[in-house]
């Protein structure tokens, strides 16, 4: 392997790593706020990419029906759960977020989709369709389990993952899709050929990381989210409802997932079940970060991407073996580095 090959692989790894990083960040966010290891995170990537692909072809994506259905179920679930304390205002708010919003998104999509709008509009539509699924899924699946153990929440997450993957197969079929790149520009840096699309990915990832950082450091909502992550009871005592912060966390998860899908879909073919494997690698990064630290999750994700790229060059049939076995020493190192804590997981 010479330097130019190494650089190409490095570039390839960093780009893939950036997507893993986005998912890793999202997993850390959801876990710290809600204790849910959000396995279905990857499905949002697939849904985002394939929805965009359908819009690009001028077809109305079936995901809008899912959005409507999830909205209705979420509304019913909320009204049922809060049936004793329900005020007219609350009902109106639920109707607004869970019924009117998806209906509006669906209507606009059905109107615009056959007209093949410019790519910016397609992307905006995709994000608008996928993002609200995050909070709806939270309210249906996880809110009723808020106090359950991490293990139960994990299994519930697997249930959601199974259902969403199945829906993906119904909506999009078994074959994959790929979208047109936002930019077909190519830049030459030394011996390295860099595509405009990869710069987009890096740029958006960096911007999103910065935005998340600013959100957590500077805004009141962000601080509230962090407070919930540190201490659920404490957060409640100072007037932050955990269900509110959870809703925000899942909204962000939906948004980041859909955005990752939009970003990655011009680079590679996405299938209804691609999300799981991408999500798993994001999960690897998140775990290396102890499900706690955003910068470490980001760095670990890039590391996973690079190791993967190098492994696919050296020993492609054992690529997954290499990628996954290499994390065990990392985990051991992380364990030894961390103080021994009693695992009080009840």
């Amino acid at each position: 392997m010479d330097l130019s090959i190494f650089l190409i692989l490095l570039q390839d790894g960093v780009i893939n790593g950036a997507i893993y990083a986005l998912l890793g960040l999202s997993l850390v966010l959801v876990f710290t706020v809600t204790r849910v290891i959000f396995i279905p995170q990857g499905e949002f990537v697939s849904f985002g990419a394939l929805t965009l692909a359908l819009l690009e072809r001028g077809q109305t994506p079936a995901t809008i029906w899912l959005l409507l259905a999830l909205g209705v179920v979420s509304a019913v679930a909320q009204v049922w759960q809060g049936r004793r304390t329900l005020s007219a205002r609350r009902v109106l708010a639920i109707a607004g977020t869970d019924l009117a919003l998806p209906a509006a998104v669906a209507a606009v999509t059905m109107l615009l989709a056959p007209m093949k709008p410019p790519v910016v509009v397609q992307i905006a539509l995709t994000l608008a369709i996928i993002t609200p699924m995050g909070p709806y899924i939270y309210r249906m699946a996880f809110q009723p389990l808020a106090e359950a153990s991490t293990l139960v929440l994990l299994i519930a997450a697997i249930g959601v993952h199974l259902a969403l993957t199945g829906l993906g197969l119904v909506f999009f079929g078994a074959e994959g899709s790929r979208t047109e790149p936002f930019s077909s520009a190519m830049f030459e840096i030394g011996s390295l050929l860099v595509s405009g699309q990869s710069l987009w990915i890096m740029g958006v990832t960096a911007a999103l990381v910065a935005a998340l950082g600013a959100f957590f450091e500077l805004t009141l909502t962000g601080k509230a989210l962090r407070a919930t992550a540190v201490n659920r009871l404490g957060a409640r005592l100072v007037g932050i409802a955990p269900s509110m912060s959870s809703t925000i966390a899942f909204t962000l998860a939906g948004f980041i997932g859909a955005l990752s899908g939009v970003l990655v879909s011009p680079l590679t073919t996405i299938y209804y079940d691609t999300g799981f494997l991408i999500g798993l690698k994001g999960f690897v990064a998140a775990i290396i970060a102890g499900l706690a630290s955003y910068p470490i999750a980001g760095a670990a994700a890039i590391l996973v991407g690079v190791v993967e790229a190098l492994a696919s060059f050296w020993a492609s049939s054992f690529k997954e073996v290499i990628v996954f076995l290499i994390i065990i020493p990392v985990l051991l190192w992380r364990t030894w580095g961390a103080p021994v804590v009693e695992e009080d997981d009840h």
């Binding site: 073996v321 985990l331 051991l332």
Partner: peptide, 25 residues
């Protein structure tokens, strides 16, 4: 012997890693 030293959520991930590796090996 290698994996059980791992604390908290590292253990489930490590078992995922072993299982995926086993499959491909």
């Amino acid at each position: 012997a290698v994996t059980l030293r791992l604390s908290g959520h590292y253990l489930p991930l490590a078992t995922i890693a072993w299982n995926i590796s086993f499959f491909y090996i």
